[in-house]
Design a protein around this nucleic acid. Sequence first.
DNA 1: TTGAAAGCGATACCAC
DNA 2: GTGGTATCGCTTTCAA
Lengths: 351, 351
Amino acid sequence: MAIKKVTIRDVAREAGVSVTLVSFVMNAKVGKDGRLDCPVNPKTAARVLEVAKRLGYRKNNAAASLRSGRSHTIALIIPDIANPFYADICRYLENVAYMAGYNVLFASSDESTQKLGNLIDTVIGYNVEGLIVAPCAGCEPVLEKALGYNIPIVLIDRNIAGDEFGRVLVNNEEAGIQAARYLIDKGCRKVEMLTYSLEITSLTERVRGYMKAMREAGLEKNMNVHSISYDAVKARDEAIAIFKDAFERGVEAFFLPTKALSMYAINAANVLGRSIPKDISFVCYDESDLYAIHDPVIPHIIQPLQGLAEQSFNMLKKMIEEETPVEKSLSLNSTLVLSGTIGFHRTPSSM
Amino acid sequence: MAIKKVTIRDVAREAGVSVTLVSFVMNAKVGKDGRLDCPVNPKTAARVLEVAKRLGYRKNNAAASLRSGRSHTIALIIPDIANPFYADICRYLENVAYMAGYNVLFASSDESTQKLGNLIDTVIGYNVEGLIVAPCAGCEPVLEKALGYNIPIVLIDRNIAGDEFGRVLVNNEEAGIQAARYLIDKGCRKVEMLTYSLEITSLTERVRGYMKAMREAGLEKNMNVHSISYDAVKARDEAIAIFKDAFERGVEAFFLPTKALSMYAINAANVLGRSIPKDISFVCYDESDLYAIHDPVIPHIIQPLQGLAEQSFNMLKKMIEEETPVEKSLSLNSTLVLSGTIGFHRTPSSM
DNA sequence: TTGAAAGCGATACCAC
DNA sequence: GTGGTATCGCTTTCAA
């Protein structure tokens, strides 16, 4: 039951050296010539390494972090890790951070400012050195306060005001332009759009992009942006009504600027017995089995999740390590995808 | 730039008490009567609380954990957090752990034994008090070694040998029975099944359940289990060939025991111009927009993700706190779902 | 009820 | 190159 925790002292005693030496060796990076870059005799270092391994020594991060003030740990706080959009970001961030020798604490804010505040306090207690946050509505005061802990914060995906934050965002207007242009280039003239009756910047930006492309093509008279309720119960029927009318008016194409809106649209087409793209062309959003399995694949905009993760990490790392003048704001482009792969997450869910 | 970290001593000095008192107060739980259950004068306690709040005191977990040996932290190691199956488990675990005052470290093993080993070492360094692991193939030695750290380990979703592990698994045979029975009760006689040519227990158990139900119904002569390659490139065409043949033979129903297999099957039906359930009935697996949007909804088996998360946490917590005789093995049932909701993850991906 | 003081296991600083 | 030791912030006896 009671087992020995192997400490640095045990290693030192067993190897016949001081704890200082062991500490040096354990923290040394391997140089390009395979040698440890620490002021320790290579033979001594080798002996320490051997003993550490034999004893099964593991550094106690709590102790190291307490003393050094560094934890090599950052936190990612997102609204919901079960949302594939954020789950993918987590995965990419995990990889890039791991490669750079950082650990990541993940947490879901659940779109609640209060929970976000608690989570920040919690991860601060772990001595995290930086934060990557996808803000939720009304969380400005909480993040403003978080700056008081004097660790760098990078906003990801969603924006709020504040000079001190780093930012890695998505160029949503450009995505809207791409989507609309694709449909226009395909020969569609009557290109319309569905959105939520919500003032969400990502949505309004996508709408703006759509409008820009329509004007550019001299189609402003055909511009038409429909809104449905964010309420899941109402949304389905509202979408059906809008598409019923659209088919009667001979609309040729629709841009659906979120995944849920895409689902409502596809559902409406199904219910109304219309087929895609024979009766109407769509540009949908994010990823779905539905797009990939459809024949032909339904064109969809995928967001730069990997870029979001990697760039935000790189930015945060530079802020942490105070490598001077960092570009503190990035805007990444989405991609229009015209092909698909069936069964993307193929891991058997059990073995 | 340089700011003062508020420590327990600062609070003690400001409140005019000793650090001991502050520690007592900060760690006290609130009893049911709203009072703190610690041996401190309520008035003193209130003053301490007020000062702590005013100064913005945050406990340093590293220090607390170093001294007490406890971290109130557990780790969840799964193959891939970007897989919705595991992402959902993360989310549920996060919630239940948070409620119980535990923090969770998440990490993806990427189905690699070596990476799993590294991750375990890493989280051990954070003084985690327990581990929940979805094992990957061949990881027995690594987990066996992990037991040497003397912290409890609960296996989730996937099983491997070993007396000391707790286990929360899915009853896959029962799921197979449910699926087949549903199709049989619906009036189908020729009910077949698609699987991978892989020896994966979850799959073989689902097959066994299917067979049991078929025999039970006196349909053993109709039993038919087809295998396709796990190779994504080949799988699609192999599935199409199997379904082409099946339609010619007048097969009435198929049970698809994983999500990817479900996708291949639906794709094959589409390609062959057959409709579900008019031409053939399916019972698919896990969740997909495709099932929900289909009219009528495609019946599918959903796995007990919430149960997996909650039960494994409860089990681990008991093992950590050594509340004696714990049931060390659980098997949870899946659910056959006949209805669906469009756009489940509705969070706009940006705001 | 309250407080003094001894560590937890590393790192950092300084001396050799 | 190497080693002694103070110290990080907290919990935990033990005494008062």
